[in-house]
Design a protein around this nucleic acid. Sequence first.
DNA 1: GTAAAATCTTTTACCGAGTTAATGTTTTCC
DNA 2: GGAAAACATTAACTCGGTAAAAGATTTTAC
Lengths: 209, 209
Amino acid sequence: MGELRESKKRDTRQRLSNVATEMFSARGFDRVTVEEIAAAANVSKVTVFNYFARKEDLFLDREGDVKLFIREALGERPKGQSPIDALRGLVDRLSERKHPFARVDSQTVAWWRVVGASPSLEARVREIGDEAVEALALELAGPKADGLARLVAGMIILTWRTAYAEAIRVFEHGGSVKKANAAFIALIDRGFAVVRQTAVSAPRRKEPR
Amino acid sequence: MGELRESKKRDTRQRLSNVATEMFSARGFDRVTVEEIAAAANVSKVTVFNYFARKEDLFLDREGDVKLFIREALGERPKGQSPIDALRGLVDRLSERKHPFARVDSQTVAWWRVVGASPSLEARVREIGDEAVEALALELAGPKADGLARLVAGMIILTWRTAYAEAIRVFEHGGSVKKANAAFIALIDRGFAVVRQTAVSAPRRKEPR
DNA sequence: GTAAAATCTTTTACCGAGTTAATGTTTTCC
DNA sequence: GGAAAACATTAACTCGGTAAAAGATTTTAC
């Protein structure tokens, strides 16, 4: 049933991702060409694009997981739990597991430094964020998600991104891992508290000018 | 003092922007090359990049204004007015002026269709949005803006983007201009109401699992 | 008005990401 | 073992973007 083939493919893919990540970390994303990566992995340039649609995906390999995690957390939540509480629980679980999405340490900071130094990587990260918003809105409100659902979804992802960025900033400013992660959780709670109110708070009438 | 030179430059720039916008609208952003634009404007390819750093900027020429408007609205606001009220006022003013940032009609919808059909244009729009967030955070909290300021700024821009996208959606789904703009304002009010509360609402403690 | 300096444009040549099509090589399955 | 399917490679190409040098135009100074 094609076992050797499959394992070879897994292997090549992993090798490419590893080799590329190492080279990007050492020299910066924009100072490494796809051809160099191909050569270092004993493969041709075309093959690289056969495995990764864009150069950026060589570095952002695991980032599609965001959508997966969200879907899981919302799908498997206990009866009666609100979506926002389910996501708050997801943050805790990922944080305990020391998953890079919810935990800052010297490794993740180094990783983000590479991203921050490359406009195209940053662009791709933004794109992935938007995909997550759309997926979350769908999860929250079904196939005909309206503007409010998208607004709530946007605020959740925005909170996550902002909290993460703040944690990185704290760490890079000489803060300890502990402080950085505390800052992360603090902002998450801030943002999520707001979202909790959004779903029920009525819009305020604009005042006449 | 270099008058002829200046006017010629303004002219060339405008010609490039016009020619490009027309071609993009007719054939789609990705189906027009920079060389074609250069030829149509009687100029060389290098000159195009002399005026516009990226191809995308040929279509998104006026989008840097977002930051300007924000700075203006916050800088010139009457004593005692909160930043969020100042921005709410800006929305009304732009809307009355029928400015494309705050008003949906068949023209703006056509414009967004071009954007939506091109990944690179969408990416650039996202980038401009992030720049606006950073500028707004700076305006709200000064040079050492913290995570909360960035969160609030992010929510404001997010609200704007989401409201606008929703208005477009309403219009394209057969809604009238009136309905589309009503949807825009409704979501703006929703999001801004949330932001008003954020600045004062305390974060909720997480419940023990 | 003219010459020199400053500024803008063009030409040419190049790089790197990404695509396409044809050819070559492995793996699979019978 | 051999045909068919799956994958990799080569080669040639497109397009956005950059760099350097040469050419043209405008400005400034005299």
